[in-house]
């Protein structure tokens, strides 16, 4: 009996040693020499493999960083500046600063419900619905509401608002990787600068139809009247194809266009709640003081 056990142990032990030796030599023979820096860089990255950088994944991004030797043109949106600084430190190059960005849904869902002309009953995919027809509201440019963007988001930062049927971005979670913008067949979602104190102003419409036609499908459509462009002190607003666009690099978030817009197509985000308006009087004169000179300037221009 003991004899049998001994033989078994010995045979298995000998096999183990034999394989270990073979493995050792094979590993030596086929060793892949890789820059250890790649591993270090990959370690710093968030590891979500979102593809927002345009590379196949986080490791491919790390390889690109190391092979390039600096961070020029390479940016990990989810990681932001903190990760960029860490990688720069590892690579020993200057830190590239980028403005933090966020995904913005440029469609105004407030009135869509009333204007619904049809009931979409097919495959729940915006990309497919876009090939079938204009969408439930009749607006051939706006959000289709099937949630391709929600499915594309790796960070759980974009959700459908069941009340309006359009997506809402959670700015805290959004890393501006751009996956939702790419998934949207109608290019409704845009990456815009987060803005100072997270305050931003944007045209919440992408409809390029003539004003009267656009209004038929949505009361809050941009009609391309150009009033916003006229009041803008920074010349940040351009109107092309009946559609106004605010250049976020120039915009100072003064909100003149917001009040000017006749269809309420321009939205402001991150400002103190509108409760300020009817509330404390003492602040009102201060606000006037700031506003008057700018308004005069604009009028003078006209």
């Amino acid at each position: 009996m003991t004899h049998d056990i001994l033989i078994a142990v010995m045979v298995l032990g000998a096999l183990g040693i034999l394989f270990a030796v073979v493995l050792y030599f094979v590993a030596q023979k086929f060793k892949v020499v890789e820059d250890p820096l790649i591993d270090e860089v990959a370690e710093v990255l968030p590891g979500a493999n979102c593809g927002g950088c345009g590379k196949a994944g986080c490791r491919a991004f790390a390889e690109a960083c190391v092979s390039q030797g600096n961070m020029e043109g390479l940016r990990c949106a989810p990681g932001g500046d903190a990760v960029a600084a860490k990688i720069s430190a590892l690579l020993g190059c200057a830190v590239e600063q980028g403005e933090p960005q966020v995904a913005v849904v440029r469609c105004n869902p407030a009135n869509c419900g009333d204007k619904r002309r049809s009931n979409y009953d097919g495959l729940k995919s915006c990309a497919f619905q876009n090939t079938v027809y204009t969408g439930e509201s009749g607006c051939p440019f706006g959000c289709l509401g099937c949630g391709d963007c929600v499915a594309a988001c790796q960070f759980d930062a974009i959700h459908m608002d069941p009340a309006t049927g359009t997506p809402v971005v959670d700015a805290d979670k959004c890393t501006a990787c751009g996956a939702c913008a790419k998934a949207c067949p109608r290019r409704v979602i845009e990456l815009r600068n987060k803005g100072k104190k997270e305050r931003r102003v944007y045209v919440s419409c992408v409809n390029k139809e003539k004003g009267a036609v656009a209004m038929k499908s949505c009361a809050n459509a941009c009609i391309g009247c150009g009033k916003c462009a006229k009041v803008c002190p920074m010349e940040a607003i351009t109107v092309v194809d009946n559609l106004s666009y605010i250049d976020y690099k120039k915009c100072i978030a003064c909100r003149k266009c917001v009040t000017e817009c006749p269809t309420k197509a321009i939205h402001d985000v991150g400002f103190p709640a509108p409760a300020v308006k009817p509330a404390p009087k003492p602040e009102a004169p201060a606000a006037e003081k700031v506003e008057i000179p700018v308004a005069e300037k604009v009028e003078a221009k006209l």
Binding site: G122, S125, F128, T131
Partner: peptide, 13 residues
Amino acid sequence: KPLTDEIRLGKNK
């Protein structure tokens, strides 16, 4: 299952 819809989408892709 909306198979025809899915296939059309796939063909487009």
